[in-house]
Write a protein that binds this DNA or RNA. Structure first.
Lengths: 117, 117
DNA sequence: CCGCTGTATCGACATCTGTCGATCCAGCAT
DNA sequence: ATGCTGGATCGACAGATGTCGATACAGCGG
């Protein structure tokens, strides 16, 4: 390829070549939803608490007191985590158990590791 | 240790044993700050765009147009990313270049992978 | 020096978010 | 059925957030 076929590189213009494709808008919106769910201390502690229980599953009654938040607030955060696809809820008689969705956090970890290059 | 020294385990109470220590409040607050910065589509695209440039560094002039947002809005998002410790900014004459902080995204990836168990 | 261009900051605004008390619903025991 | 307990939903409210236009500031070129 002769140099005449290269695009004009005006030295007065600031531009650098892309070495890979940037993230598209749709994927960014999806991922942002998940990361937004992680963007609150209470929700990070909830995820950690759930995961720290045997089987990666915990009853709501074991999640409210350690956080020092009211029961409606904890319920709200659990709802956010559920709608983000990070946990699932299941009724077992009187109590409701929340469980980490297998691979959900791992998938986000892979995204970050990829973007880190 | 005799069984008499164990805490009372009332079978009518829902409780499961912890298999590891849950995340503490301070660490949760720190991590939430970082994940909150990732919880916006525009900022995810900015990170991806910066990382997609040669050397993991890009000029602001190359970041504004692809996002379809106003220049002040992009500047705001870059500020959030900088204050979260994910990028650094450096003036090169007329233009300002933003660079991914090495290891910052990777550290968050490790956190998620750990919590994923 | 004066103007031009790139970037940051300011002020304003609508929307979203975290929090709580009050209330409602579901399941179990008496 | 009645009551009790665990959990979700509702309504309200203060504060944070995303967005923009207008403006200020910093280099560079004339």
């Amino acid at each position: 390829m002769s140099v005449r076929t290269l695009p004009l590189t005006d030295v007065t213009v600031c531009s650098a070549p892309l070495v890979r494709d940037p993230m598209g808008p749709d994927r960014a919106t999806d991922l942002a939803r998940a990361f937004k769910a992680l963007g609150d201390p209470a929700r990070l502690r909830l995820l950690s608490l759930i995961g720290a229980h045997h089987g990666g599953s915990a009853c709501v009654c074991d999640l409210t007191e350690p956080l020092g938040l009211s029961q409606p607030t904890v319920s709200h955060h659990l709802r956010v985590l559920r709608e983000a696809g990070l946990v699932t809820s299941e009724r077992r008689g009187t109590w409701v158990h929340y469980t980490l969705v297998p691979g959900a956090l791992g998938a986000l970890a892979v995204v970050l590791a990829d973007e880190a290059g």
